[in-house]
Design a protein around this nucleic acid. Structure first.
Lengths: 181, 181
DNA sequence: CGGCTTCTTGAAAAGTATCAAATATAGTGG
DNA sequence: CCACTATATTTGATACTTTTCAAGAAGCCG
C-alpha cells in the first residue's frame, strides 16, 4: 500500500522494513520504531529505538540495504530522508550522527536500575502522546528494557494503581497477522 | 603532554576529554574508550563504548564541544579525525554513522542475559588483546554491563576457574591520582 | 461462538544486590 | 629499600528483585 519515495504510515506492530532488503532512509515524523538486529538463522534481538525526529535506515545510503529490522511500536508516519532526495549535506549527516549517539545513550539508560524505573523511563522516552496513551505491546517493552513481559505487566499495573497511568488503556487481542506470501 | 592535532596516547583509566570542553574528533587506533553522559550536577552515567577503529567526539564538528566524557578503558592510541583535517566527506560520515549504530547495538546486547554471559561478551567485544589480557577495572566493567563490581568479580573468578581466562592477570592497587591544579 | 493471542496475577525458584570483611597492589615517605 | 596507607579486588552470607512456571481473564477475528 505504501509507495517508496513519499510519506508512509504504519500501524502499531507492523513491520516497516527488514534487514537485508533494499530501500531508502526515513525520518520518523511521528510515532516510535523498534530496530532489531537480525540475520539469517539469527533470532531477532532488540538493537535500538527511534522516536519522533530520528532518522532510520541511513545505512542504505552506503550499502543500499537495511542493516536492521524496523517495526512500528506505535502508529507511525515516515517521510523520505533526505528531504530533497539525493545525497545529504555533510552538516545534516553530522546532526543525524549526533542525534543517533544521544539516542543510543538513552536506550542504554533504559536498562539501568530497577524494573519500575526502567518502565517509567521508557514511557517518558516514547513521549507524551496527545490523547490515547496506547502503550507498545508488553513484549516490545520487555525486549527494550531487558525485562520479562510479566515484570513489565506488573510495573504497569503498579503505575495504574498509583495513578501515574490512566486506569485502563485497551488491551490487545489477537494481532493482525500480516503475511507476505 | 598530548598536543592537539597529532596522535595521542592515553594510559588505561585516564580521562581523554570531558563533556562541554572544546576539542576535536578522534579515531581510536588501538585500545577501548568509555563514554559517559555527564552534565553540571549530574553524576556521570555510562553511555557508550568505542573500540579499535571507532570515531569519538564527532559532535565537535557540529558544536565545537564534546557531549560525553571519554575515559580510556585500556591503554589507547588516538589519531585526529578526519585524517586530512577539515570537513569529512559525506561517505566517510555515513560510514561512521553506520559503525556507530552497530556499536550501539553491541552495547545494548551487553545488558541482556545473565551476568556471566554479559561479562564474557564484554571481554569478547574489547577484542583479543595480543599478550597481556589486562581487563578494565571492575567498576568500568560493572558500569558497562549494568552489574555490580562484586558480581563482575565473581564472574571473572568463575572464568578463571574454568580456564576461559588466564589464571591471574595482575591486580590493581592504588590508582595514580592525576590531579590538575 | 471457538480459537488464538495477549495480558494479568500468583507462588516458588533463581539470580543479583547489598553488606561486611579479608586480601592484594601501587605509590608514598622514611 | 621497606613499612605504611589508600584503594581495588575478592569472597562470604543474607536480603531483595526478578524470572520462571502456571493458570485465568480479555480482546480480536473468522
Amino acid at each position: 500500500m505504501n509507495k517508496a519515495g513519499q510519506t508512509q504510515t504504519h500501524p502499531a506492530g507492523s513491520r516497516i522494513y527488514s534487514a537485508g532488503k533494499p530501500g531508502q532512509a526515513w525520518r520518523v515524523v511521528s510515532g516510535a520504531v523498534r530496530l532489531d538486529r537480525s540475520g539469517p538463522g539469527v533470532e531477532p534481538m532488540f538493537a535500538n529505538l527511534a522516536v519522533e525526529g530520528d532518522i532510520i535506515g541511513a545505512e542504505t545510503l552506503l550499502f543500499q540495504r537495511y542493516t536492521f529490522d524496523a517495526t512500528a511500536l506505535a502508529d507511525c508516519v515516515l517521510s523520505p530522508w533526505p528531504e530533497g532526495g539525493g545525497a545529504p549535506a555533510g552538516e545534516s549527516l553530522l546532526a543525524v550522527l549526533t542525534a543517533s549517539e544521544t539516542r543510543a545513550a538513552d536506550v542504554v539508560a533504559l536498562r539501568c536500575g530497577q524494573a519500575l524505573e526502567r518502565v517509567k523511563r521508557l514511557i517518558a522516552l516514547l513521549g507524551p502522546r496527545p490523547d490515547a496513551p496506547a502503550l507498545p505491546s508488553r513484549r516490545d517493552m520487555a525486549d527494550i528494557t531487558a525485562l520479562t513481559t510479566e515484570t513489565v505487566s506488573r510495573c504497569i499495573s503498579a503505575l495504574r494503581r498509583t495513578g501515574m497511568l490512566p486506569p485502563d488503556g485497551q488491551r490487545r487481542g489477537r494481532p493482525q497477522l500480516s503475511h507476505q506470501p
